[in-house]
Every structure is written in structure tokens, then in C-alpha cells.
Design a protein around this nucleic acid. Structure first.
Length: 435
RNA sequence: CGGAGCGUAGCGCAGCCUGGUAGCGCAUCAGUCUGGGGGACUGAGGGUCGUGGGUUCGAAUCCCGCCGCUCCGACCA
């Protein structure tokens, strides 16, 4: 995109309503604007990041064998009455009435709806297992929204739901998701640690939250550095091998890892390589057996003809929350430092002298060759403005085109994460960016 | 849900206490100079002072209601 033709409203001042780094930077870099408390509009740059994260999440869900669907945001209250959660959920659930005075709700999660879909559709154990997910907007009417998109009321979430014939099958599904999650977070450029968690209002028996470290995290976390060296690649573990999954689950649940509520000083004292800091929850997985399938009447015929109640799990990743969390985990005084995989654009082209024939020609050439992966700063502004905005927006690469180098056919390539700058030919710079 | 604040130009704020012509910085627009880390000068545009009512000759300013937003706590993906 050309910056002069784009809605990327960067701001110099620190917005007064934002307290934490990610929120300030998301506003300053023109990623989002708040439309009401805890509700945000995603501007072009922010939406590209959101889509990049969603794409990676989707690819890893698909690789694990989960199937993508899309369920509605509005749900009938009747479904929630069947599971018993309509009255239990509390004021966090946004309840609405339609013109016929029927009770609806804006979904905070989809266990009821997916269970309803499955009970309509499957009749036999032969149709299990199933794992379905969607990436969709949720609404939770938080008492006190804050921290920008990290605790918004409307948020984008990937939620998956597994259905298995029995607990043993459900545990395999759970382990597959745990593996998919580790790969997802690795690709997003962050170290996530699975920590045993309480199951909360979803109910159930087995649950882990995935926490990434960031100085402004909501809770104190403790874990064994052993997590950092576990190879989760397809070469190490296959989704198709139960023994691989078991070995993986053991590796993920054996080293010490705990949030402050579950912290055990005695066990912690025995850990050789300690890691400690503030953590942000970016994912949560649950196994809850027949908590929904039973009351909602999901039954399949088992191998012996008897009626079997499938075992379920649900698995969430906070996609919009991750945008803030990734920034919390990766920024400096100048601005955001995007990981290559999620950056809105791979590179920014900084034309330091708009109107100069040589500079313009080089920039246009690079812009065409980067085909949509670059933001071209074609504003008639001074160099300092462009440097500062590029640092603020956090593009992994900056291609700096100024009259000095341009005369020799050279450009400067700056790596945002390290600050390293090298003078290269256009060809070499492009090769380095794509390589 | 308890407690505390704040709503004045796109953003950040002053003015309010002590009522009397709506201000500052940045941003925006025009022009000139400038040109490698948020440049300078000249000029210009932009406001029903959140909203409704009350007091008053007169309200951004005082009083009451409402709405919105933020912070602390409890809660929470």
C-alpha cells in the first residue's frame, strides 16, 4: 500500500486513555480505534495483523485434523437453558430480545451450539471423532474492560470443540490440540507455556492455559526453562501417532509450570533452571467429558448398539488478544517490533526524497517487486518523520532510499529488531528480505 | 459491583475556584525556505465547551439529572 492512499493514522502523543504499552502502541501505530468501552474497530494495518494471526491459527488447526466451520454470533437462549448455563452465566452474557420478545444472546462461547449441531447430525460411533473450530467474534460484557484489545468486550476467538466416543479418545484430541497450540505460538514468535488451570464456568476435569511472558502480564508465572528447548515440530511428533502424542503430553506436563494461584514453593525450589515473570493467557484448553453432551441429549450408537454419550473438549485461542499480547512481548521505546510472520507488511519503503527522479524510480521498482508485502512511505515528509513512523509501526524491514545511495544504485536495509543497517543493491536487499 | 476522576478544535491540555467576546501546543490547509531521526517562517480553517434542565441581565464556569469514557479494587479469555 502507498501510505498517502492509506488510512494509517499514526499519532505522536501518548493517548491518555491507554495505560499499557500494547494499547498505546496500537493506537499510536494506527492499528485500532476504540468505538465504545472495550470495543474496537480494526484499521487496515491492524486488520492485516489480525488476519495474519488468524491464518497461522487456521493452518495449524487444519494440520491437526480440525475442520473449520462458522457459527452465528447470535444464539437462542433455549440452547443455553438446556445446558443449564442460561441462568448460571451471569451478567457477562449480553442478552437481547428480538421483535417477538424471544430471548437471544450474543455468544460468549459455543459449546451449546456445537453440541446441538452434532446431535442433529451424527448418530453412530463411526462418525467420531470430530473436531470442529471457527474463528469468530465473541462478546463478554466485562465489568471493567481495559488494556485495549487484551480485555475487550468484543473479541475474536478461535474456538474448537472435540467429540469422541470415550475419555481415552477425548484425551487424544486434547493432546492433539496441545501440540497444535505449541506449534501455533511458536510460529507467532512467542514462547507459550501450558499451565494446569482451573476449569471455571466451562466445567470439566482437565484444563491447561497457555501463557506467554510479558512484563505487563496479568499474573505472576513460574516455569522450568526445559520448556524452551522442547522441539514441537512435525519431525518430533506426529498427530497420527498415539505414542508420539503421549510422549509429547508427558514432556508438556512434567516440568514445573504454575501461575501464582497454583504456585508451590516446595516444588519450585527443586527446579534447576527457573523462569519467572508476568504472564498473559493467550489460549485455554478443556476436557469436560459429558458436561454438555449429556444434558443436551447428544447420543450415538456404540459398537454394541447401546447409546453412548460422547466426550467433549473445547479449545480457545484469543486471536484479537494475541495482537496486544504479541506487542507486549515485543516492543521498545520507539514502537512495535513485529515478528515477520504477523507483521502487517514485511517491509516499509522509505523514500527520503519524494520527487527526486532516481529515488522515486528505485522506490517504485521495489514496491512493484514486493507485490503487496510492502508499505510505501510516499509522503512528502522529512526523513525523521518517516524513520519514526516506521519504527513505531514495527515493520520487520525498512528499505531506506535516499539521494546519497540512490545515485550509486544503493539502498539501506534496516532490521527493526536489531537496528542493524546495511547498504545494499536493490537486488541484494530484496533477496535478503525474501530470504 | 464498590470507590475515585474526567468530558472544552483531530490529539494532548489550560480556562472553571472568584460568571462578563473560546485559548495554548501539536496536527490540518495554503505559500516560501528546507531536506538522512517528528525542521523554520508567514498566513488560514476548524468549537452548538458531552447532554437536558435550573439559577442569573449574562453560564465552559454555579446547582440538579442523564449519557459517555478512564483509573483503583473485586471479577475475568
Amino acid at each position: 500500500m502507498r501510505l498517502t492512499r492509506s488510512l494509517v493514522p499514526t499519532i505522536k502523543e501518548i493517548p491518555s486513555e491507554a495505560q499499557i504499552a500494547s494499547h498505546r502502541l496500537m493506537l499510536r501505530a494506527g492499528l485500532v480505534r476504540q468505538t465504545s468501552a472495550g470495543i474496537y474497530a480494526w484499521l487496515p494495518a491492524g486488520y492485516r495483523v489480525l488476519q495474519n494471526i488468524a491464518r497461522i491459527v487456521r493452518e495449524e488447526q487444519d494440520a491437526s485434523g480440525a475442520q473449520e466451520v462458522l457459527m452465528p454470533t447470535l444464539q437462542s437462549a433455549d440452547l443455553w437453558r438446556q445446558s443449564g448455563r442460561y441462568d448460571g452465566y451471569g451478567a457477562e452474557m449480553l442478552r437481547v430480545k428480538d421483535r417477538h420478545e424471544r430471548d437471544l444472546l450474543y455468544g460468549p462461547t459455543n459449546e451449546e451450539m456445537i453440541t446441538d449441531l452434532l446431535r442433529q447430525s451424527i448418530k453412530s460411533y463411526r462418525e467420531l471423532p470430530q473436531n470442529l473450530y471457527h474463528i469468530q467474534w465473541k462478546f463478554r460484557d466485562e465489568v471493567r474492560p481495559r488494556f485495549g484489545v487484551m480485555r475487550g468486550r468484543e473479541f475474536l476467538m478461535k474456538d474448537a470443540y472435540s467429540f469422541d466416543l470415550d475419555q481415552a479418545g477425548a484425551v487424544i484430541a486434547y493432546r492433539k490440540m496441545m501440540l497444535a497450540y505449541m506449534r501455533t505460538f511458536r510460529r507467532l514468535g512467542v514462547q507459550a507455556i501450558p499451565m494446569a488451570a482451573d476449569t471455571g464456568p466451562i466445567g470439566g476435569e482437565l484444563s491447561h492455559e497457555f501463557i506467554i511472558l510479558a512484563p505487563t502480564g496479568e499474573s505472576q508465572v513460574y516455569y522450568d526453562a526445559a520448556f524452551e528447548t522442547i522441539d514441537t515440530s512435525p519431525a518430533a511428533f506426529s498427530f497420527d501417532s498415539e505414542s508420539d502424542l503421549e510422549r509429547f503430553a508427558t514432556l508438556m506436563t512434567t516440568p514445573y509450570a504454575a501461575t501464582d494461584e497454583k504456585h508451590d514453593e516446595a516444588a519450585w525450589a527443586k527446579v534447576a533452571n527457573k523462569r519467572e515473570g508476568r504472564g498473559i493467557e493467550v489460549g485455554h484448553i478443556f476436557y469436560f467429558g459429558t458436561r454438555y453432551s449429556d444434558p443436551m441429549g447428544l447420543r450415538v450408537a456404540g459398537p454394541d448398539g447401546s447409546q453412548v454419550i460422547p466426550h467433549m473438549g473445547s479449545y480457545g485461542i484469543g486471536v484479537s488478544r494475541l495482537v496486544g499480547a504479541l506487542i507486549e512481548a515485543s516492543h521498545d521505546d520507539a514502537g512495535i517490533i513485529w515478528n515477520d510472520a504477523v507483521a502487517p507488511w514485511k517491509a516499509a519503503i522509505l523514500n527520503l526524497k519524494m520527487g527526486d527522479g532516481t529515488c522515486n524510480a528505485i522506490c517504485e521498482d521495489i514496491y512493484a517487486k514486493l507485490a503487496g508485502n510492502a508499505l510505501y512511505d510516499d509522503r512528502d515528509d522529512r526523513a525523521g518523520v518517516k524513520f519514526n513512523d516506521a519504527d513505531l509501526m514495527g515493520h520487520p524491514w525498512q528499505i531506506i532510499v535516499g539521494p546519497r545511495g540512490a545515485a550509486k544504485g544503493m539502498v539501506e536495509l534496516k532490521r527493526r529488531a536489531t537496528g542493524e543497517r546495511v547498504e545494499l543493491s536493490v537486488e541484494d536487499a530484496l533477496a535478503k528480505i525474501s530470504g
